[in-house]
Simulated assay, not measured.
Amino acid sequence: MNSEMEKEFEKSKSKDKQERYEAYHNILNETEHEVDWAYEVWDQLLEDLTHKDNHQRSRAAQYLANLAKSDPEARMLNDFPKLWEVTKDEKFVTARHSLQSIWKVGLAGREQRDMVMEYMEHRFQNCTEEKNYTLIRSDILQNMRQLYDHLEEEDIKQTALDLIENVEDTKYAKKYKAIWK
């Protein structure tokens, strides 16, 4: 990792909110494409998934989701359950930001895609007891849409449409269908 990125990771933990915010965006932008330094920060990010600061948990989850494409050892296949836990964080904003980025793990390869789809499908079917479950469902369908738009695999779309078909509340079924228009 070059010294600029090292500084960005340091700044992402700064007490200064603006500095933290800029570093966050710089790291996300840098990790939009494959990088060769993912493992230099991987273990720390895994540790940060349970950090006492919910912002730190959220950032770690988003960074790891972005870094999944830079994971030639396929560590994400073993580490994904830890990342997924943050999508159920006690702080809903943390959970939601984590969930909204989770689809990026599916871009890392077929196994990762299948794993992410399986987790999201299960959550969609079983989240009705969770607070804000309609938003969770919406985010899951949006994640599937993102994956579909990037990978253009019909089974992703079909899974999403099948999930929507089983939604009993017509108001929400209509909203969910709009994601796929």
Rank of each mutant, 00 (worst) to 15 (best):
R59Y: 12
D139N: 05
R145K: 08
N2G: 13
K104V: 01
V41I: 13
R145V: 03
L77K: 08
Y119S: 06
L141R: 00
T159R: 03
A173K: 01
W37V: 03
D36A: 09
F9S: 11
E4H: 09
V35L: 04
T87A: 02
E34Q: 11
E73P: 01
N66D: 11
N126F: 00
R20I: 02
N29K: 07
E154D: 12
E154I: 07
V116K: 02
R137K: 14
D162W: 04
V116I: 08
Q62D: 08
T170E: 14
W42I: 10
I140W: 01
R145Y: 12
S3N: 15
A160V: 04
D169M: 00
K171R: 15
Q112E: 15
Y119D: 00
V167D: 00
D162N: 13
E121Y: 01
M5Q: 12
S98C: 10
Y133W: 09
H33E: 09
E32T: 10
V105H: 02
Q100N: 09
T50A: 12
Y21I: 09
P81N: 07
R110N: 14
Q100C: 08
D155F: 05
T31E: 06
D149F: 02
V41W: 02
K15I: 11
L107M: 15
E111K: 15
Y172Q: 01
K11M: 10
S3Q: 15
V93I: 06
V105M: 10
K171E: 14
E165M: 05
R123K: 07
K82W: 04
A74D: 15
A160I: 05
K69Y: 08
D149Y: 03
R96L: 13
A74S: 13
E154S: 09
V35M: 01
L141P: 00
E121W: 04
D149K: 05
E30H: 08
T170V: 14
Y24N: 09
L49F: 07
A108Q: 10
D139P: 00
R20V: 06
D155W: 05
R20H: 06
L46K: 04
